[in-house]
């Protein structure tokens, strides 16, 4: 039993349930509605990328969303997956006019995550840790 963990599969139908889980946790941590929205949005963006690009919507694959309350002022979400390592911190900021000219519909999620969270850390899987871990941190202000 891990009450702060949500297990999800590689299916975008999971996004609503993931947002609900994170919203409930962020609200009880003490965030007001704008903060709750930003946290849920960042987690949605990270999980959307994971489901569609890394897991290719393979519903047999699982990932986890954990809430780690290490510090009374810092809300920490950790997303663990077994896909190919992808460091979102290496993605450049999108150029809107270029994207429109190219009819590109993706590539914004990472930028949103970096803008709405206070800290983002990516730890690729290694022999000691079989999961890639994306840590998202938001401070209570």
């Amino acid at each position: 039993m891990h009450p702060e963990r949500l297990a999800a599969i590689g299916d975008t139908t999971e996004l609503e349930r993931i947002r609900q889980f994170v919203e409930v946790k962020a609200r009880s941590f003490g965030f007001s509605e704008p903060g709750i929205h930003k946290i849920a949005l960042a987690v949605d963006e990270a999980c959307s990328n994971l489901i569609r690009h890394s897991y290719q919507s393979d519903t047999s694959r699982e990932f986890y969303v954990d809430i780690a309350e290490q510090d009374p002022n810092a809300f920490v979400i950790e997303i663990s997956d077994t896909g190919t390592a992808f460091d979102p911190l290496n993605v450049p900021a999108p150029n809107l006019r270029e994207y429109a000219a190219q009819h590109r519909k993706g590539g914004f999620g990472v930028h949103i995550i970096r803008m709405v969270m206070d800290a983002v850390e990516y730890l690729p899987a290694d022999p000691a840790h079989p999961f890639n871990r994306l840590k998202l941190v938001k401070h209570l202000s």
Partner: peptide
């Protein structure tokens, strides 16, 4: 989410 915003990016130039 950004997936929704992406829809408008696909068609705006066209």
């Amino acid at each position: 989410s950004s997936a929704g915003l992406g829809v408008f990016m696909v068609f705006i130039e066209e």
